[in-house]
């Protein structure tokens, strides 16, 4: 009955207590702002800069979204092809593993020099690469994990490879795809913010954080960090909502 209230209320209460404790800790121990600013100071910066926070969030969010969509589509398509053709599979999987072992974010400065400094493309490219891997791996795992009985059932209907993919492989893989997407949604925002740390356009959350920090405006830097957290949360929640919509049989229980 009140489980719903508890589910939302308890985390909120925990958050409020956490902020209160943080404030008291800073005040009681007279901690310097460059170490840890007070939540109240951060809040003041947040409200003062709200317009700029919203516009920079929108820019960084757009980069994250574009990269997420492109990377996710590419990852899923690659997984579909890999699951259908053994040759592609044996080529792509080691390659994907190698790409994943690489700290992709380290490519950001290189991409920056590849494109003009007024371009958002390098950032979106970083996000795309970061997103690609978890989707590829999860989608492929889902596509491969077919129950033998479903294979036999579709064989008994003399169904071809694509029919099988459409009726069994893809729907069966959806839960895995969404596990990957939830993971990738948070990663996309992190990548989009961090990619801005390496120069290029001065118009996103990441650039505001670095410039505030280098100007010793610590509470302001923290205000933008808080915005980045909120953006990450929005992406995660959107992915979760999409998951509920697309795989109702898993959430109806």
């Amino acid at each position: 009955m009140n489980t719903r209230a508890a589910r939302i209320g308890l985390p909120v209460l925990a958050g409020v207590l956490f902020l209160l404790g943080w404030e008291l800790l800073v005040v009681a121990n007279d901690i310097k702002p460059y170490l840890l600013p007070k939540p109240s100071a951060i809040w003041a910066q947040l409200t003062r800069n709200i317009d700029d926070i919203l516009t920079t969030s929108a820019r960084t969010g757009t980069n994250a979204l574009v990269g997420l969509v492109v990377g996710a589509v590419a990852g899923i398509l690659a997984a579909l092809v890999a699951s259908r053709f053994r040759v592609v599979d044996s080529l792509l999987v080691p390659l994907a593993a190698a790409v994943n072992a690489m700290p992709i974010i380290a490519l950001a400065p290189i991409f920056n020099t590849m494109f003009s400094t007024t371009s958002a493309v390098p950032r979106r490219l970083v996000v795309t690469l970061v997103v690609f891997f978890p989707l590829f791996v999860n989608a492929l795992r889902g596509l491969r994990q077919v129950e033998p009985i479903h294979r036999e059932l579709l064989d008994s209907y003399a169904a071809g490879g694509w029919t099988f993919a459409r009726k069994v492989r893809v729907p069966g893989a959806l839960p895995f795809v969404f596990t990957g997407l939830r993971l990738a949604a948070s990663l996309a925002v992190i990548a989009a913010v961090v990619a801005e740390y390496f120069g290029g356009l001065q118009n996103g959350l990441g650039t505001r954080i670095t410039s505030a920090a280098s100007n010793t405006a610590y509470p302001r830097a923290w205000a933008y960090v808080a915005a980045a957290c909120a953006l990450g949360l929005v992406f995660y929640l959107a992915a979760t909502a999409l998951e509920r919509l697309a795989t109702p049989w898993r959430t109806s229980r």
Partner: peptide, 9 residues
């Protein structure tokens, strides 16, 4: 079949 083999989705 011996198992129902229904599709969850």
């Amino acid at each position: 079949f011996q198992q129902s083999g229904l599709m969850d989705w």
